[in-house]
């Protein structure tokens, strides 16, 4: 810092505001955690503060041992993993040729990309295209349409172009083709970029409910967010009530199940993002310069 000073009244005020704000961000999650561990019998309609009312693992036991709910969860992992991988590979492959200044056809591709940035067919035509291609009720309806975004391709291109040309040339002396250069040199040198975009994309797929809602009618293919939508928003507990193990576990309430379902869905992402935080700013900066 430029000048060392004692804490002023403003500093105290500022710390207080930040602390209150952090509490506002954390409280809903803490409350949900408390709710999920609460004992259904003691809970009733009581308001949960920050501690569980009673203690019980029944909600988790139900969710984690029910085949259907487990399948929703595995579907989510599958879609997020596949979607992210496809996005990273296709975006890298599209960005790489564009880094060569004399690449024939590069201008045309850039124009096609920029147009897609400003104009879109909108919801209904996009829906109809996916419908017509016969992708409904397959995971391709979710993972293919968002795989290429002009914005991502441009950022990848800028990042790749900043890798010294001497590195690419030294590889070509060893007889490496374009695919080898991309796979062995460009990709390993772009790890921060790839990590940032992998995180954004994975989060996008993990949290999506809308596209699965319109494209996946078969319940067995649905991701966890649609299950969450049913129990949190539509207050439809048929998934839970039809659970095969409900007879085994008594003493369970819709509220504790809601809490536990939220916790098992958000935990993986909340555990990962703090470690990738240093990359956000970098990613944002690259994006901002380009945009």
């Amino acid at each position: 810092m430029w000048v060392e000073r004692r804490a002023s009244a403003f500093d105290l005020f500022n710390y207080a505001i930040m602390a209150v704000m952090s509490a506002c961000f954390l409280y809903p999650v803490v409350m949900t955690l408390a709710l999920s561990f609460s004992d259904a019998d003691q809970l009733g309609n009581a308001t949960v503060g920050i501690w569980p009312v009673g203690y019980s693992l029944n909600a988790y036991r139900l969710l984690l041992s029910d085949d259907r709910i487990l399948r929703f969860y595995l579907n989510t992992i599958n879609y997020a993993g596949t979607g992210t991988l496809i996005m990273l590979i296709s975006t890298s492959m599209m960005a790489y040729p564009l880094t060569f200044r004399d690449f024939r056809g590069g201008k045309l591709v850039s124009i096609l990309l920029v147009i897609s940035l400003f104009f879109s067919g909108g919801l209904v035509p996009t829906y109809l295209v996916v419908l017509r291609l016969g992708l409904v009720d397959t995971m391709w309806s979710l993972v293919l349409p968002p795989a290429i975004s002009a914005f991502n391709v441009m950022i990848f291109r800028t990042f790749f172009a900043n890798i010294p040309a001497s590195l690419r040339e030294s590889a070509s002396i060893d007889g490496a083709g374009h695919f080898t250069v991309l796979g062995r040199i460009i990709i390993p040198l772009s790890k921060p970029l790839l990590a940032t975009f992998a995180l954004y994309t994975a989060v996008m797929f993990w949290n999506d409910f809308f596209w699965s809602l319109i494209f996946l009618r078969d319940q067995d293919k649905q991701p966890i967010q649609l299950f969450l939508r049913r129990i949190l928003v539509l207050l439809d507990f048929r998934d839970v009530e039809n659970s095969t193990i409900l007879e085994v576990i008594q003493n369970i309430s819709s509220r504790t199940v809601k809490g536990a379902a939220v916790i098992i869905t958000i935990t993986p992402i909340l555990c990962v993002y703090p470690f990738l935080q240093k990359y956000f700013t970098k990613g944002m900066m690259i994006g901002a310069i380009k945009a």
């Binding site: 590979i89 492959m93 591709v109 990309l113 067919g121 035509p125 109809l128 293919l144 374009h178």
Partner: peptide, 23 residues
């Protein structure tokens, strides 16, 4: 190789961005 690399992205752009625009 450069054109082979471009293919998946281009196909995606045409199918999921330009076809809806035409729509």
């Amino acid at each position: 190789a450069l054109y082979v690399m471009l293919l998946p992205g281009l196909l995606n752009l045409l199918l999921f961005k330009y076809l809806p625009m035409w729509g």
